[in-house]
Design a protein around this nucleic acid. Structure first.
Lengths: 344, 344
DNA sequence: TCCAGTTCTGCACACGTGTTCAAGTGTTGA
DNA sequence: TCAACACTTGAACACGTGTGCAGAACTGGA
């Protein structure tokens, strides 16, 4: 026999297995001396309850599934950490699955979670398109999307947490414009994803508000990773009239851009200002330190998990939460070189 | 009724539930037309088998547990990615749990995995002490430790994957010594962990082999993170006769050290050479690019998972695997400044 | 001593799937 | 026509836990 079951204990204690079940769960229905005796025997026999058996009986697994594009992304890793901490605190275990940014794989993973009867699903930075939410909804499992990359319609089962991109993006632009920059470039992600779209929207709106011209050649798309930022910056430097400041979609892109600038001997921020988004740990260790927008990554994970827990316990909660970013001023931004310290 | 079960399908198809079970699993025991009909009905009813029920019957969960200190560590994130990819490929789901480097929590997590009846457990960078392996072994669950931080005795249930620290460390030192450095510092992790101990052993042995003096003041302990490296480097710079090269326990420490050097206007590698360990993604985006030892992180995860799979299928395999690091020469090392290009 | 009420215990079933075994049906060959 | 065989199906049970309900055991009061 592989594992001790309550039936084994029942035999040893000369009682029935329901009595054991109740004793172990401290039910008041069982005489306290009997219960104590049973628990002692269980302890001696090295009993560990089977979550499988329990799940089958209670129709509750205390498991949640987390889908990420890739856990190797430091942004996502932080979010997952927040999720896992909260989940663990409340007795939930976390399934982790990488979709590798492959929509088919992502859907397959969700089905696998469904078959395991997880109590809820969290999805970080989904890359799946418009039909996704209805598909998820059909599973009738509570779901929270974190920084979902496609606009989602409200839904009974699908909730969401995301950062207020437009607001944060506007803060970035205010900072740069306030320093005196007029030619500000934008290095984005691959086209079509929501956080890119929204941050770009904030960029454009800020230019308009300041009555500055929008120059399409100042907008370059990377891939959200360092390599893309590196190449995007190379392109920007080839323009006849290059920008004096660059707003990067995220810190990884900024890191790549910084690399290009450094390799070409261009000083940051003396020659060009650079600003990122996310506030990854690395942003505090680059040279110069990177000015960026802090996303409360762990907290977003905690909030998402908390939304699930609320759903489980029937607490009514908002179907969509927007968190605020915070502009972190460090060393990578300064007034443009032609500007002697005071803007315009 | 919440989920469709094989009994529901059985009713609809006017057969018994064992027949449905067999039909869905393409058993040759059921007539092919019947099977086809049953599968059609299952499809129509939106049936998804319950992994819970199946696990209970088969005593196999196709789940594995992964314990990490924290998923926010980029080294560990890469390892986990390798694990998850391989697991997914073979139909296994992965539980992820952070121990936050807290031994009690780590043990608690292992028990939780045990209760969920995972088929195997992977532990990355365990911080639990000597009694750990016997404890794990008592669970009678196959376990693979990855870069375990305490020396482990061979055991029937507990296997391990680790990097050959001494060899890699020696390669680092050969490189620095070959460049002409004689005063080489070592920035370590907190004392007492195996990878630190071994890398330090390689450091000392290399000095001995070269007949260079070992100076205790050149050895400083950080915390394995950037902050620790930063402070350790500050200490090193206060020495009367500072080192011309610094071997950092890992890339995060090196990143911190680099920050200190940069802040104090000390040029790398012109004034001081710096070398890391791990080859994190960031190492390719620092200025200067960081020379380091590449650990095959994802591959280590794959190997560990493969060892579990081998155990499941009864394949005999080695109980301990050592993988080799690879010295990656980039820009952060050069001959010492007093040395005109040719060593000694 | 007996009854009513309380406290405790066990039977039977449920949850969803898989497997063994016996029995049913149809086929082939003598 | 019958036996031997292959093919197909379903009854019964297993896996480990939880729960409604009936009944047993105990308690206290008259």
């Amino acid at each position: 026999m592989r594992h001790v079951s309550i039936k084994d204990i029942a035999r040893a204690a000369k009682v029935s297995h329901p009595t054991v079940s109740r004793a172990l769960r401290h039910s008041p229905l069982v005489r306290s001396e009997t219960a104590k005796e049973i628990r002692k025997i269980a302890e001696t026999m090295g009993y560990r309850p089977s979550a499988i058996g329990r799940s089958l009986a209670t129709r509750k697994t205390n498991m949640i599934g987390v889908v990420v594009t890739t856990i190797a992304d430091p942004f996502i890793a932080d979010v997952v950490r927040g999720i896992e901490d909260t989940a663990n605190e409340f007795g939930y275990s976390v399934f982790l699955a990488n979709s590798n940014a492959n929509p088919d794989r992502e859907i397959q993973v969700v089905h696998s979670f469904h078959e395991r009867r997880v109590d809820g699903i969290l999805v970080a930075a989904s890359r799946v398109g418009a039909l996704y939410v209805p598909l998820l909804s059909r599973l009738r499992v509570p779901i929270v999307l974190i920084n979902n990359q496609h606009p989602d319609e409200p839904d009974e089962f699908v909730r969401s947490v995301m950062i207020d991109n437009i607001k944060a993006s506007s803060a970035v632009m205010s900072h740069l414009i306030g320093l005196g920059h007029r030619r500000i470039a934008y290095i984005g992600d691959k086209s079509g994803f929501q956080s890119d779209t929204e941050r770009f929207a904030g960029y454009r709106r800020s230019l308009e508000l300041a009555s500055y011209a929008f120059s399409p050649e100042l907008v370059v798309h990377g891939d959200g990773k360092a390599e893309g930022g590196l190449q995007a910056m190379e392109k920007l430097l080839q323009i006849a009239d290059p920008p004096t400041a660059v707003f990067c979609y995220n810190d990884m892109s900024a890191l790549g851009a910084l690399r290009t600038l450094c390799a070409q001997g261009i000083r940051v921020p003396a020659d060009i200002s650079l600003i990122g988004f996310d506030d990854l740990a690395i942003a505090s260790y680059t040279s110069p330190l990177l000015t960026t927008v802090r996303q409360p990554k762990q907290q977003m994970g905690r909030i998402a998990m908390q939304m699930l827990l609320d759903t489980f316990s029937g607490v009514e909660s908002k179907s969509s939460i927007k968190v605020e970013g915070e502009l972190i001023l460090r060393e990578s931004t300064a007034p443009p070189s032609w500007c002697d310290g005071n803007a315009n």
